[in-house]
């Protein structure tokens, strides 16, 4: 009963409050954070590290790294953005280690300012449609387009949070998402054509 009440109490607490408890030496508090972020980070890993068998191992490394660096977390800021930033770094390292996909050291998209496209009313319909396409065409996209699309469509993050995680300007996030969408549509059309019966 006491255990159950304790569990209910922790449910009410914010991630930041729990992180503070973990910073003060409560290892179980960190366990709660792992529970809360395990599924979202696994989902992020599965989609961003598409085709990488060790995606779950990398997620475990994210939590270990987060624990080691927990004292660097500022509890006045968002814990979610902080742990996703660690995950981003670990995932990029995993991709680099494999060497299957190119991760350019410098991205010209971050060089110049770009206007940020305003959100349109038909965005929700488009979002649902593109989410389906994204599932079937993930592997066709470069990591630099795949990652913001995954964070935007599956993690429901806004441009600012994605910029915070990827350490890039907000306008660059917009550019990558728009280009990513265009590439997705192209890939989808190509995919549909290849599945269509030859003599139909």
């Amino acid at each position: 009963m006491l255990y159950y009440m304790k569990d209910m109490e922790s449910l009410k607490k914010t991630d930041e409050a729990i992180a503070q408890e973990a910073q003060n030496g409560k290892a179980e508090a960190f366990g709660i954070l792992v529970e809360r972020f395990e599924q979202p980070l696994k989902r992020y890993a599965r989609r961003f590290l598409f085709g990488y068998t060790e995606a779950e191992d990398v997620v475990q490394d994210v939590f270990l790294k987060a624990y080691a660096n927990l004292q660097s977390f500022d509890t006045a800021r968002s814990f979610s953005a902080w742990i996703y930033r660690i995950a981003h770094n670990e995932f990029i390292n995993a991709i680099k280690k494999k060497g299957k996909e190119p991760i350019p050291f410098f991205d010209p998209d971050t060089l110049f300012p770009h206007p940020v496209e305003p959100t349109r009313t038909d965005d929700d319909i488009q979002k649902a449609e593109l989410k389906d396409i994204l599932d079937s065409c993930l592997e066709k996209l470069d990591p630099k387009y795949r990652e913001p699309l995954v964070l935007y469509f599956y993690e429901d993050m806004d441009y600012q949070t994605i910029a915070e995680i990827m350490h890039i300007p907000t306008s660059t996030v917009g550019v990558r998402i728009n280009r990513g969408k265009q590439l997705l549509r192209k890939a989808y059309i190509h995919l549909e054509k290849s599945y269509a019966p030859r003599n139909a």
Binding site: E28, F30, G31, V34, E35, E38, Q60, L64, Y67
Partner: peptide, 13 residues
């Protein structure tokens, strides 16, 4: 079950 949580907590302990 709870593989990551258990494993992380085991590493901490």
């Amino acid at each position: 079950n709870n593989s990551i949580k258990d494993s992380v907590l085991a590493s901490i302990q």
